[in-house]
């Protein structure tokens, strides 16, 4: 009998340990053991992810990586940015070269399912647009009949382009390049009449052209491009960590918690803020984080609105309006589930 109880005890202990282990994220454990987050970023797109002369990355997508690093390490600099072209990005993530992919990636069903990936949310609502030279004298995509159009291969852009021109029965010629830089260079060299990518990307790339004033963005937005961070299948806790890091930024804006006032908020009596900064409840522990994880994110990176204004909004060269990316309470689409 004693032996049976002993055996049962061993089994139960083993089950608990196994259960505990499964709640632990293997990706998180790996990130912690190498004490740096490997983040797949773009090859340089102003406002979303671009290194400066000192090699410091900044941008909307970069801030998501910094938020995750802040939540884990309480240090937004513990991120190694690995530049990936559009066509290499998924293979890198699938193979484990990066822990997280945050580089203007459109959420689609095939990427979410067949590619073995999970999207952790939407950090920018975008749509595909077209840039042309002003001297062409056109005001609509529909007038691009017979035009050569430069695009980046392996993107949803390439597919939307084919769909749109086919459904409008317009003939065109596609010239597809492997990287964004080559695409823009070819457009600038006159190889193409138009350059197409996400509208935010068009405004960013226009600034890099030698004479930005000679180019204009056409009014049509031909697609939905919900951009967000991506992780691999098979690590649900890691998905939670990335998802809630993004949600924490959005919630912080809604609650009025900013980089500047985060420390004061630790003394707040508001129960919502108390749960957010971790003075009430234990919301970080189930993810394998500390309970002040969300406070750390705002303290180091700021809230979503701050990130937006700094990188693509009024505080940047791009001057993009909040539009669809305003909070839901202000007529936009940004909405995060509550922390409770």
């Amino acid at each position: 009998m004693k032996q049976v109880i002993g055996a049962a005890l061993v089994a139960v202990t083993a089950a608990i340990c196994a259960g505990g282990a499964s709640a632990q994220s293997p990706t998180l454990a790996q990130v912690k053991s190498r004490s740096i987050l490997h983040c797949g970023s773009g090859t340089g797109l102003a406002g979303f992810g671009i290194p400066d002369q000192q090699g410091n990355w900044s941008g909307m997508d970069v801030d998501v990586c910094r938020a995750v690093a802040s939540a884990i390490f309480n240090d937004p600099t513990k991120v190694k940015f690995i530049p990936l072209s559009a066509k290499d990005r998924f293979t890198s993530l699938q193979s484990g070269e990066v822990d997280l992919l945050s580089r203007t990636t459109t959420w689609t069903i095939s990427r979410d399912t067949a590619l073995g990936l999970n999207f952790a949310g939407i950090n920018y609502y975008d749509g595909q647009g077209f840039m042309v030279r002003k001297k062409l004298g056109i005001d609509s995509v529909l007038k691009l009949a017979g035009a050569s159009i430069c695009t980046q291969q392996g993107t949803t852009t390439e597919l939307n382009l084919a769909d749109y021109f086919r459904s409008n029965k317009i003939k065109y010629e596609v010239v597809a390049f492997a990287s964004n830089q080559e695409t823009v260079k070819a457009y600038e060299a006159g190889r193409c009449d138009a350059f197409t990518t996400d509208a935010s990307g068009l405004y960013a790339e226009r600034l890099t052209l030698s004479n930005p004033e000679d180019h204009m963005v056409l009014p049509e937005i031909i697609s939905k491009e919900p951009l967000g961070p991506v992780v691999r299948h098979g690590d649900d806790v890691w998905l939670d960590i990335v998802k809630w890091s993004l949600f924490a930024m959005i919630n912080a804006e809604e609650l009025g918690i900013t980089k500047a006032n985060a420390d004061q908020m630790l003394k707040s009596d508001n129960p919502e803020i108390k749960r957010f900064v971790g003075t009430e409840g234990k919301f970080g522990e189930p993810m394998g984080l500390t309970n002040d994880w969300a406070y750390r994110i705002v303290k180091h990176v700021g809230n979503y609105g701050e990130s937006f204004e700094r990188n693509v909004g009024a505080g940047s060269l791009l001057k993009i309006a909040r539009g669809q990316n305003a909070l839901w309470s202000k007529g936009g689409l940004q909405y995060a589930p509550p922390i409770r």
């Binding site: 998924f90 193979s95 291969q153 392996g154 390439e158 010239v175 492997a178 070819a186």
Partner: peptide
């Protein structure tokens, strides 16, 4: 060819097709 946008086998197949299907 992949570097200058000529649609050869590598550009089309291991570029776009690989990326769209994810079956590296």
């Amino acid at each position: 060819a992949v570097a200058i946008g000529y649609p050869d086998l590598v550009q089309v197949f291991t570029g776009t097709v690989l990326n769209q299907t994810g079956q590296a």
